[in-house]
Design a protein around this nucleic acid. Structure first.
Lengths: 219, 219
DNA sequence: CAGATCGGTGACGCGCCGTCAACTTCCTAA
DNA sequence: TTAGGAAGTTGACGGCGCGTCACCGATCTG
């Protein structure tokens, strides 16, 4: 109520988008986010304090609160940051699909590859090595779920899918994607391709069409 | 069952049946667990303090730590308590199965009915209305997952299932069950039967065999 | 019934949280 | 170029929840 730092002026001269002050602010926010990623990964969410995060930066404790209101908020900001990276990839992959097979396959393919290759921190979106499972209803993450449901509905409208309950189908895809990611994360050698083939076959033909153990190709 | 209200006298509890000291201990543990359920449900996990829980009982603050080490531990004890109720139901349901159809159908049927009817708090196992998703690797919950995987492996051995990756299939079932539960929890009128039919059809025949909208699932 | 043991009690010290008044740095306009 | 203001940083401080522990009453044992 005193100073709401989230009050960007409505009209902003685009000339000085990169003033030193604005630049430092962006930097500091990123510094805190990066430090948070490191510290959370090291000690887990529960054992981490706001002070721990700040101690991993050259900033003072009060500065943290110019950017985030709490430990939870910085965690959610991390999730959002990740969601913003993977969402366009998923969207693009699904847009190319012209069949159910491609739609499902592209979704799992993209997700599992991102989780295992690019985005180690995606695992932390759902699975925190320490103690907690954080809320998944941050704006960007929810937007990702909504996009998936929208794409399903569009596909139904185009006759690509049968007219099923898009909400449940979305939930099923999300549930399988995240839960299998967690299992993958615990395997010595995790193969995103094999996992994607498994999930794709399951959604397309059910259990009886799953790749048999030992095979690598099922879709 | 319990009065989680303020009990006036700071004197001794008046229980007197069999083995007084041991009995009181059991009672106190249960009193704390019940109070925790109430307070967590009311204010959510994040906003609840250990003192809040204790204040909802006639006990003193120090007593809490004779039974649980932290807020998280009492939460996990709640999960375990719930897991101990639903696990035998699931086990029994799956044991009767003589086909893949029955195995899958019984699993989802039992789970969704329990979530919606008997066990409102089961939703809190995976979805806390407030802030957190708590760890799902408490002993009893993990045991439930293991039992599912064992049952799948047994079914494969009996030739009931094709020889698929039991670990991934377990993960897929768990993921769909919990994620669909969350969606159900947000629907105005949730029908466990329809949800179970949806999930069962998905696992047995894939997307193309799903019930069409209007048949039993609405959104 | 007396001594031993167990568990309850609640005040206490500690550490973390979020704030805020003072200070420093950057921006803007004359 | 520079003065005044705006924006951002700093770190100490009050408040609070946590977990402990010395004390005590109640229960058990012989």
């Amino acid at each position: 109520m005193e100073q709401t730092e989230t009050a960007p002026p409505p009209s902003r001269p685009a000339a000085k988008a990169t003033g030193k002050r604005e630049q430092t602010k962006q930097q500091n926010r990123q510094i805190i986010l990066d430090a948070a990623r490191t510290v959370f990964a090291e000690h887990g969410y529960g054992a981490t304090t706001v002070r721990d995060i700040i101690r991993a930066t050259p900033l003072a404790s009060g500065t943290f609160y110019n950017y985030f209101q709490s430990k939870e908020e910085v965690y959610q900001a991390m999730q959002d940051e990740t969601a913003l990276v993977i969402r366009p990839k998923l969207r693009e992959a699904r847009e190319k699909a012209t069949t159910v097979e491609e739609f499902i396959s592209a979704t799992f393919q993209t997700f599992f590859e991102f989780v295992l290759r690019d985005g180690v921190d995606v695992r932390a979106m759902r699975h925190n090595a320490d103690t907690m499972r954080m809320r998944m209803d941050t704006p960007e993450v929810v937007a990702g779920f909504d996009e998936l449901r929208e794409d399903i509905e569009k596909a139904i409208a185009r006759g690509l899918f049968p007219p099923v309950d898009a909400d449940y189908l979305m939930a099923a895809i999300v549930g399988v994607a995240f839960e299998m990611s967690e299992r993958m994360a615990r395997r010595v050698e995790a193969d995103p391709k094999a996992a994607a083939d498994f999930a794709t076959a399951l959604f397309l033909g059910g259990i009886r069409s799953l790749p048999h153990t030992g095979d690598g190709a099922g879709a």
